[in-house]
Design a binder for these strands. Sequence first.
DNA 1: TTGCGTGCAAAGGTTTTGCATGGCA
DNA 2: TGCCATGCAAAACCTTTGCACGCAA
Lengths: 150, 150
Amino acid sequence: MQGNRKGEYQTKQKAQVLAYLETHAERHVTAGELMQALNDQGTPVGAATVYRQLERLESQGLVRRYSLDDRGSACWQYGGSEAKAGTCHSHFHLKCICCGVLIHLDCEHLSGITEHVRSDHGFTIDPARTTFYGLCKACTQKRRMPDDPD
Amino acid sequence: MQGNRKGEYQTKQKAQVLAYLETHAERHVTAGELMQALNDQGTPVGAATVYRQLERLESQGLVRRYSLDDRGSACWQYGGSEAKAGTCHSHFHLKCICCGVLIHLDCEHLSGITEHVRSDHGFTIDPARTTFYGLCKACTQKRRMPDDPD
DNA sequence: TTGCGTGCAAAGGTTTTGCATGGCA
DNA sequence: TGCCATGCAAAACCTTTGCACGCAA
């Protein structure tokens, strides 16, 4: 193995990708969304470069990769300096099977289940891979309606 | 009684797919593996049919779909009569991302989170659709080995 | 100048879809 | 006989890779 990370250049594209992820650190974005956004703001970056940068940023610990989507697309999220401290991989995600909204749930009760399952059942949960599926508040109420005006 | 719903036919292909999943209920298989296996045993089934059957079996609750692979391939596993009877709707599932084993976890602590999330966060979790991903006991210990056998 | 990074396009793999045909009830 | 299911092929996606050129250091 050769650790050739010393010859690393600063490029516009790299900055664009990182800047976008940083600016939208509260969201997960797919590679497609990222490319679309960069294109829309007038600073298009090629697909290959986007993927290569995401891969690099992930290996550098600045960005985390998630498998939140049912479909074959991965999501990335900026973690920045707190990446090691933990952002989205410290909590769980709720995904509405009706409207598709993704909810980040920072909740001690839920966070405790990782410890519980590990200590009592010997299973080490990976929050980055785990998503709760169900109905969000809005869709739960919608389902209770007798009529569906949609 | 009529076990079949209206307008649903019994076909050889459907039986093949179900039989294979049933026979290998302890394993999770990708669509590709399933097609390969059916082809090897002399009863090839077209890709489109395989996917359509898997989708149907999933919606019928006989088979569960998982996103275990980082790459673009999903996995399916037979859930069988327990799934149909609704037993699995009352508890959660743990899926090992390393060996693929599926664990049915009946645990009061975990069952309580559904209530908690509903009352405190307004989100109605569907345990039948929710799976925890992580490392099972055996694989956790395997990963703890100081030497990396890989 | 050196050689890493980029863009384009093509390849690779998984899953879906259209359409004509075949098979179950 | 009706209609659903199948199979083939092509399309739709997501992601990776090869290669020549451009740009940072």
